[in-house]
Computed example of a mutant assay.
Amino acid sequence: MLRFSLVAAVSVWAGAGVADVPRVATDIAPVHSLVSQVMEGVGAPDLILRPGASPHDYALRPSEARALQSADIVVWVGEALTPWMSKPLESLSPDAQKLELMEVEGTVLHDFRDLSEQEEEHGREEDHHEHDEHTDAHGHDHEGADPHVWLDPANARVWLTHIADALSELDPDNAPLYRKNAQAARDRLAGLEGDLAKRLSAMQGVGYISFHDAYQYFEKRFALEPVGTISLSDASTPGPARLAALRDRVAGSGVRCAFSEPQFDTRLFQAAIDGEPVKTYELDPLGVGLEPGAGLYPALLEKMAASFEACAKGE
Rank of each mutant, 00 (worst) to 15 (best):
D248F: 07
R23I: 11
L109M: 10
R157P: 07
D20N: 14
L246D: 00
G52P: 04
G287W: 09
H128G: 11
D27A: 11
H138S: 11
A299R: 14
W13I: 11
P147D: 05
G289E: 14
D248W: 06
A25K: 09
V149S: 07
C257E: 02
F211M: 07
M1E: 15
A299F: 07
R66E: 15
G191T: 12
R188E: 13
Q118C: 06
D114P: 07
C311P: 04
R242S: 13
R61S: 12
R179V: 03
A190H: 12
G191P: 08
A29C: 09
T135Y: 09
K98E: 14
D127W: 12
N181L: 03
H134D: 12
Y208E: 00
E103L: 11
D114N: 14
L200Y: 00
K87M: 11
E64S: 05
P292L: 04
K313M: 07
H122K: 13
A59D: 11
I209W: 02
Q37A: 10
A80C: 04
A137V: 09
L167P: 04
V75T: 01
A305F: 02
K220T: 14
G275Y: 01
E193P: 06
L151C: 02
P45C: 02
L68V: 05
E103N: 13
R179A: 08
V75W: 04
D195R: 15
E121I: 15
Y281K: 01
D95L: 13
L300K: 08
L301D: 05
T161W: 08
A223T: 09
P262W: 01
H138A: 10
L290E: 00
P51D: 13
A299Y: 03
Q183P: 00
L89N: 09
K98F: 00
G287F: 10
